[in-house]
Structures are given as structure tokens and as C-alpha cells.
Design a binder for these strands. Structure first.
Lengths: 249, 249
DNA sequence: CCTTGTAAAATGTCTGACATTAGCTAGTAT
DNA sequence: ATACTAGCTAATGTCAGACATTTTACAAGG
């Protein structure tokens, strides 16, 4: 178990946590199963028990495992994972092949939340918020060529995060963390045709413009349009019922 | 600094973290200020460095402090706090006098999110979800008398959490954690007149009924009505601009 | 003035031992 | 036969001390 995993050259404490977390997130360890003991992990990765315990503490803090003295560590249900923890976002974004169900759940959330977020942003955004959006948009436009998918995705994340930031609400702002894994999954799946990119850019521009002009209703519609574009790029069939019923995309 | 804090009789590792966290959450330590050194905390609370380090690791994981080797620990900005972390929810719910700005921010979030959540719940709720809602509602009704505020609040939390659960979305479900600190703050501030309680119950009932009847639009309106009731009980003026500046509490 | 070296202070890590808890097993009394 | 208890084992939790690493401040020298 975990035999094919390797610790990166860095090898710091967070690196070990990331390796162990991805073993769970990739789905190779079923919920309810026993997680390896501390001693085994020490031998397997040739690190001290201290580091192993720190890594396991991170996994427990994000709800990936449950630890009980004398019993051991056990993998928890997906419903217990703290998807909104920034650590979790990093781990998810680094996955080679993220669980399609998770991608779907996060997308469904964004579909139901982001129009509202855009509406709030249109009501509250100030100059700095607009500057962030403009910068991110320019970055997306300048990296629209082939071979720049990675950088394009980063600017894409920055754009959407900018919308969350512009709400000026402490809770909504925290949720921008979800964007990275969602958008990374996007570029890993879609082939990003040139015309698709052009269309996506235009839809983003309309969100930015509506926020600038303080038009909440237009911002809501524009955000929805961006997400519809995202759905087709993700290969999610619009008419298949996602987690919830009937979003007539 | 922190002289008047005491470790509860339990004294476990999480207890120490809670004490330290509340020192920050109560606002006595300004953002950017230095947090006490590990050695000082060891002496102050008469615990080993190990426990202190575990507690500080929790504070760092929730974004309350930033730790750098050789430098020390520093209190982070409110905008960096992970309000959606379950640990944070527990700490916030245990505060005697939570920061009014935080209460307002969380309320503003709920006001913008919960109608949508109720709508999704109306589309996706199954029998188990309805049973949870009915149980919670019955609990609220049975604890409507005086002197039962604490238990009433718990059932209130269970009701709203049930709505989040009923969305059957992994992300929305995580957000139910925010409810406890929000509702605890509610009962600590409002005097809960008998007629106010009666009105609140009726509004909750309409949410439950709309979810049962699969009426998304009615659920949205009913959830909004509950939150308006909450606003007056919290002493928040409904027409003042919420998410942005101006906290005339 | 800038650079560099050095020392101090703080957190990070390692090690070994012991404490505590959960679960199992065997034994015993009713 | 069942139920309860004692004890054993294995796992995580805690402690104590030493050392490593990083940051910062300060002072000497160019």
C-alpha cells in the first residue's frame, strides 16, 4: 500500500502531507479503511515519526482521516472532507486525474453560487477590485495562444478569485480557494480550441464590464454565461442532472 | 499579555488551542502584532512545548497566525482567517462577546446564500432530509419556552444545517458549520420575546413546507423571510448596506 | 554607505522514553 | 452458557532534551 509513492526532493513536512493526501484524494484508499500506522510510514518514507505525525495532523485537520489513540487512523467519508480548506485546494489542484465526481460537485456549487457572487461584486467592487479584474483579464488574453494553458489557467483563477474578492465579504472571499482545483481540472480535460477560447474571453469581459457599471442583474447573467461555457469545456452534458435536479443550462 | 486566561480543567491539546484562538478572536491582539513565543506559552500555561506547538499548529492551520522559523508567530489579518474551518466555528461559537463585525459579515453571507441554498434543497431533498428538518422543527417548538434558549438554539442550528444538507452538494454541506456561531450570537443578543419566537417558528415552518412540496421559488422566499426575522432579532437594520463599510451596530 | 561576518533568538527537527487508550483474550464467577 | 473482569498488545499521545535551521540585529571592515 502506497508503494508507488515517492517523496519529492524537497521532502519538507507539507510535502509529505501532500503525498499522503493525494493517496486518499485519488481514490485508492476507500472510505472506512485503515490508514497505515505511523511506524510504517516512518520506514516507508525514511523520515522521523515527528514529521509523520505532523503530516497526519494535517490530514486530520482537513477531515481526510480520523485518528484515535490506540486504534489508528482511518479514512473518512467524502462528505466529511473539508473542501474549503486552502490545504485541500492545493492538494486537489495538484492531482493528475481528479475524481470526476468531485469536479462535478464543485462545478455544481459554482453554478449555483457564482451568479450571486457576481451580483454582490457589482454592488461592492471598488477601483482596486476592478484593477485586479483588468489585470487578470489581460493575462488571460495574452496567454490565449497554444502551449500556455498553464499560465492561462492561473490568470483564469485570478479573474474568478477577483470576483469573489470584490464582494468584500469575509466568507465569500474565503471561497475563492475552490477555484483553483476547478479550473485546473478544466484545462486538463478540455482541448481549448481557439474559437472556444475567444468565446470564453468575451464572456469573461462581460462579467467585468457589468461589475464595473454596477449592473448586478447583468453581472449575474454574465457569470452564468461563463459557467455554461465552462460546462461544455468540462464535458459536462448540460441536460444530465448534476448533483441537484434540473439546471436548465 | 494573556495573563487573565486560564486553561480549563480538561487541559487537553485542543483546549489550549481554543484558549489561544479566543485571545485573537476576541480582538485583544491586533493584526500584525507578535504572538507570544513558544517558551513563554509553556511557562504561562505550565505545559510542554509539544502541546504548545500542537496548539500553535492549529492556529496556523486556521489562518489565525503566521509562523516563520527564526522570526516567531504573528497575528494575521481578519481577511486571512479561515472562517469556514470547523475548528474556527467551534471557537467562534464559544465566544462570550463575538466581534460585531464578524457577526455582520456572516449574516451578510447567509442573507445572500441561504435563499439559493433553500432553493436547491427544495429540488433535491429526500425523505431523510425532511425527517431531519421535522425533528429539528419539533425541537424548536418544544423549547420555545423561557430558560431554554440554549437548547432552542441547538435545534435552530440543526434546522438550518438540515437545509444545507438537503442540497446534497458536498460544498454547500460544508458551509453548515457557519451556522452555529451565527445563531449562538443571535440568542446572546436578542431577548426572544414570545411573539418573536412564534413568528420565527412560523417562518421556519414555511421553509420546511416549501422544501417538502418541491417549490424552489417559495423556498427561496421563505428562507429570505427567516433571515429578515433574524436581522431584526440581531438588531441589524435591514436597509443599511451590509457587506461593505459602515458597521453602526 | 555598503557589505560582510558573527552572535543571538526563535522555530523546526530528531531521538528515545513513557503515558494513555482501544481492542482482544483468557480466565473466572454467577 | 453468559457476563464480567484482568491483563496483554498495539497503536496514538505526551514529555524532555538536544541539535538544526532560519531570521534578525549588530558590529566590524571595505
Amino acid at each position: 500500500m502506497l508503494d508507488d509513492l515517492a517523496l519529492p526532493a524537497d521532502g519538507g513536512a507539507p510535502a509529505l502531507a501532500a503525498v499522503l493526501a493525494r493517496a486518499i484524494l485519488s481514490g485508492r484508499l476507500p472510505a472506512g479503511s485503515d490508514f497505515p500506522r505511523e511506524k510504517d510510514l516512518c520506514e516507508r518514507f525514511a523520515v522521523s515519526r515527528n514529521r509523520v505525525r505532523n503530516a497526519l495532523a494535517s490530514l486530520a485537520a482537513t477531515g481526510l482521516v480520523e485518528r484515535t489513540a490506540g486504534r489508528g487512523s482511518r479514512v473518512r467519508e467524502v462528505t466529511d472532507w473539508h473542501l474549503l480548506d486552502p490545504l485541500m485546494s492545493d492538494w486537489l489542484a495538484g492531482l493528475e486525474r481528479p475524481d470526476p465526481r468531485l469536479v462535478r460537485e464543485i462545478y455544481a456549487f459554482r453554478l449555483s453560487a457564482e451568479p450571486q457572487v457576481a451580483e454582490l461584486a457589482a454592488l461592492a467592487a471598488d477601483g482596486r477590485d476592478l484593477a485586479r479584474l483588468e489585470n487578470a483579464f489581460a493575462g488571460m488574453r495574452d496567454t490565449a495562444g497554444p502551449g500556455l494553458h498553464q499560465q492561462h489557467a492561473e490568470h483564469d483563477v485570478a479573474f474568478h478569485d477577483g470576483v469573489y474578492q470584490a464582494t468584500h465579504n469575509l466568507v465569500w472571499r474565503q471561497m475563492g480557494h475552490l477555484l483553483r482545483p476547478s479550473i485546473i481540472a478544466l484545462i486538463q480535460r478540455s482541448q481549448h480550441h481557439a474559437d472556444s477560447l475567444e468565446d470564453s474571453l468575451e464572456r469573461h469581459r462581460r462579467v467585468m464590464e457589468a461589475i464595473r457599471l454596477r449592473q448586478p442583474e447583468a453581472a449575474r447573467r454574465a457569470a452564468l454565461a461563463v459557467l455554461e461555457r465552462t460546462a461544455t469545456d468540462l464535458g459536462l452534458l448540460p441536460d444530465s442532472p448534476l448533483p441537484t435536479e434540473g439546471h436548465p443550462i
